[in-house]
């Protein structure tokens, strides 16, 4: 059972990278929140594959606890970000949000 956790770890690195790249694009805030969440899942994927010990052995519980904390913190941060975004959308369109008009 040598290679399968490595495959997941490498996938995690890839997901982290593409999520990070996408979160830096100039797009709707909602899309960037999705991108940050996906890049977070990449980090979780790396941590959990480091915890994996094969079919017969129990995995390392410490990364699992860290990732569980991470999932909850991620949803809290996304919720706050979305609430801020909603507040931004409610504000009267002012100089801060109109960029496409010359």
């Amino acid at each position: 059972m040598g290679s399968s956790p490595l495959l997941y770890a490498v996938t995690g690195a890839l997901i982290f990278g593409i999520g990070l790249l996408a979160s830096l694009r100039d797009e709707a805030l909602l899309a960037r929140i999705i991108a940050i969440n996906i890049s977070g899942v990449g980090v979780f994927l790396m941590l959990v594959s480091f915890a994996y010990r094969g079919f017969e052995l129990a995995p390392d519980p410490i990364p699992h606890a860290l990732v569980l904390t991470g999932i909850v913190v991620a949803v809290a941060a996304s919720g706050l970000a979305l609430a801020l975004e909603k507040r931004l959308a409610e504000l009267p369109k002012s100089k801060t949000h109109k960029e496409d008009s010359p």
Binding site: I33, N37, V48, Y52, R53, V67, I71, S78, L82
Partner: peptide
């Protein structure tokens, strides 16, 4: 990857709640 705690949390929080939140937004 033998992490059933995370599978539960991801299905409820990561996919469920975050998804519902994004859909509402």
């Amino acid at each position: 990857l033998h992490a059933p705690d995370l599978a539960l949390a991801e299905a409820i929080i990561g996919a469920g709640l975050t998804g519902a939140m994004l859909l509402m937004s």
